[in-house]
């Protein structure tokens, strides 16, 4: 038997209608269909979701940890970008 590992996939689950898909983990699968089925069996056993996306991990382009300061520090001192100065109406459940 050829000991070649199945490619890695990243799994995103939408927990309920109206919310966005969130990354929940990764898994191995030979193709898209198997990745979807494996995601269903690994990540939705406790009613975690209503929709699944799977994406080949190789398709993800990630930021460089060494560039972290240049990328993220400039946002540090700009608290006015947070919507914390507003009163949020009670009816808005998801923000």
């Amino acid at each position: 038997m050829a000991e070649q590992d199945w490619p890695l996939w990243e799994v995103f689950i939408r927990s309920r209608t109206g919310l966005s898909h969130k990354h929940v983990g990764s898994l191995h699968a030979a193709d898209q269909q198997m990745a979807l089925q494996n995601a269903r069996d690994l990540y939705t056993r406790r009613q975690e979701g209503v929709s699944i996306w799977v994406v080949p991990s190789a398709a993800i382009h990630a930021s460089d940890p060494a560039e972290r300061d240049a990328y993220f520090d400039p946002a540090d001192d700009k608290i006015y970008r947070h919507p914390t100065f507003y009163d949020i109406p009670d009816e808005v459940e998801v923000l």
Binding site: W6, L27, H28, A29, Q37, N38, D41, L42, R45
Partner: peptide
């Protein structure tokens, strides 16, 4: 045969 498949079978 693989973690993912085992979870499926046991499900």
């Amino acid at each position: 045969p693989a973690l993912e498949e085992e979870m499926a079978l046991v499900n």
